[in-house]
Design a binder for these strands. Structure first.
Lengths: 231, 231, 231, 231
DNA sequence: CATGAATGAGAATTCATTCAT
DNA sequence: AATGAATGAATTCTCATTCAT
């Protein structure tokens, strides 16, 4: 069916077969649910970045989303549930975007790939400082780990980026002493360094910081290469 | 002074000279004030690390400190005031301790000095993980900057460590492209990387992380050295 | 009927004769209704004794019973409706069981009959303390009276036990001053005394209480006999 | 000081010594607290008997008592805290009143004493049916036991009535098999039997019930006397 | 200075009930 | 008949802050 349909398509009732109708209705109901859920997520995101997580109440979210307060609890456990889902969702989006961009450019050398990705992520973050603020203050490495309790945001959107990165590193010719720790250091450095730059503009602007940050990332990577002798 | 005296020493009012009395009372009152203030600070710190800042109420603090609730507002503006003062105080303590230790060892080469300091700080933090948790989640680079609104904790305890470090770097023979940014990157890396290790034990223990972290710090520093050609 | 059929058996609608279909469906639908209703009753009972009536929500009941929330309102007015029906049902069950047991033993003397019944009931309750808790806290004498608003549980299950008892007493040779009040006192005494014993084990266990309770019941009955002189 | 004083006795400030004043003020504050507390208790009682405990919210209580919602939590843990204190308080009042009346009449024979007390209590309850409703539905034998968690209502009002009764029974010449159980049976019988009479006027009025109830109590007591042979 | 009772706005959460499908 | 998403009033409880003493 055309996706431009309004939710309450009454005129069709006469035309279609009962079973098909029921399926359609079920589909409509499901779509409606999805919309409610997404309205809540979007509204929560806006408010979280506007007023901070502690400064946002569930009442704020539901009111702005145009749903009843009780509806919130149909979809999320509490404020922290929706916050965590948002963070993972947004962080994954950023990484996926970077990954796609990288794939298109066809960079192959591992160091270059990581550097490209880091740079891409930083650029994305610097263009969306609100998002940076939100993610950095709340992101934790553990969130990328599969074993976390909460299921992914919309079921299918959490292809494990971290695994892909690790995998790529492992497959590459150059060996690193401990690729996961290397990634960890790089991600933490990016998050923390960018955050304070953006929030306080201290000690410099994010744009001024970027070249130093990129060099530092390269330096960290090289410091963790296995020398041919050591391997 | 007789130890049986009540703090407010009412019985003396009749006997002593008014002026002496006032001075004595002032002294005692001042000591009393200081004690109250310190009781509040210590208690707040305990509670903040125990139950987190949002989980601690002013009532909790005053009750455990043994003062009235109203008294809190005589000394601090609100919970975030006392929190910020504590963070700066504690962070400064750590850095000062590291600085002193470094001075005693007589390391002179700049890279070695910074590395020593970083290592020392990490060791302190790994021995006091509660403090690490508290500081990292709340520390911001801006807090070390003079221009922040709140005056320092007890007036004199904030000799500007950052300035000293910068100064040392500037005076050293080796030139760095931008020493402040370098310090910034190092401090942020330490804070963020240690925090997640301690809180989630991910991706490894803090002890396992330390060598990689130290190497990364050295790598960052070298990457920011001015080569004679480049300058 | 093929067991693979869905309960609402939509596929048959086209094949069978309308009237047969309606009858069949009615039969199935009626069975279905009965099942739903019974699932709700059983589940409610379980939850009421598990978590108490105020601690049980309609959502809890319907979820555990595997029906939709709206379905509850097709069968019951509200939580208190289902509660009252349950209590009457369960209390009647107990009394009926006692009555049957008594009939089998062939006790004829009235005092013995009542004592037998009381003892039997107490034994049943002591073997099902969960039921005792549920009934005692909620039972009221008025529930046994015909004139109550709510119709009986399943239409036919409320042969009026009380009437039978009264009848038996009236027909017996010994005359009691007021048999209904006598029964009332006995029933209330049993309910209240057993309840606290079971819930708090105070002032003694139910087993320790029973002989005293039985003696008290006998004593009450004798105190209400009409002496030939008094009549 | 005359007790007719208004709470804010400003005119005295000039006349009295500071210390005396402070004490007076403290006294006033304490009196004020007591008044608030009592206002809450009285209001809660009124509402509990009017609308039932579940039907009364804390908002209702504070609003009617003329205090802020938060004030409630200064004095009571929650609704059930205030309910339990009220029940114990009221039940104790009734028993104390009965005990005093009995003492004045000088009845000495034990059976007569218990019967007098029971009759007195029933009369009190029949004159205050609202109270009866409230107490019976909520009273539990355990509440009379010292070992309950909550301290007594106003500190001093809980002379242990039960102990006194037990003591009297023990000291009396006549021996009972188990005086505490006897008391238990009597109290439970009174509570349960009176409750349903009052609430549903079934199976008869409380006034009509009383003679039967009194006789039953006597019968129970006699059934629990130790025969001289048995002792 | 110090106190701590009082406040009341506001946060989170629950739940009976309705109603469109 | 059955469903279950949506509602929003209602409730409990917390807590920063004030202010009279």
């Amino acid at each position: 069916m055309s996706k431009g349909l309004k939710i309450s398509g009454e005129c069709q009732k006469q035309i279609m077969e009962p079973i098909q109708l029921r399926q359609l209705n079920k589909g409509k109901a499901a779509a409606n649910k999805r919309m409610k859920r997404e309205a809540l997520l979007n509204t929560a995101y806006e408010l979280f970045v506007q007023k901070g997580v502690p400064g946002t109440s569930i009442h704020d979210i539901t009111e702005k989303a145009g749903v009843a307060k009780g509806t919130f609890y149909l979809y999320f456990k509490d404020k922290y549930d929706i916050r965590d889902r948002l963070i993972r969702h947004k962080a994954t989006q950023i990484l996926e975007k970077g990954y796609e961009d990288m794939s298109r450019t066809g960079v192959t050398a591992l160091e270059d790939r990581v550097v490209f990705l880091a740079d891409n992520v930083i650029r994305q973050l610097s263009e969306n400082r609100i998002l940076l603020k939100f993610i950095s203050k709340n992101l934790s490495w553990g969130m990328f780990k599969r074993d976390l309790q909460a299921p992914a945001l919309s079921g299918e959107d959490e292809i494990n980026l971290l695994d892909s990165l690790n995998e790529g590193i492992r497959r590459s010719g150059v060996k690193y002493k401990d690729p996961e720790i290397m990634l960890y250091l790089i991600i933490e450095l990016i998050g923390a360094a960018c955050y304070n730059c953006v929030v306080n503009n201290e000690p410099c602007s994010l744009d001024d910081l970027r070249p130093y940050l990129m060099n530092s990332i390269r330096a960290i990577m090289r410091s963790m290469e296995m020398t041919s002798a050591a391997s």
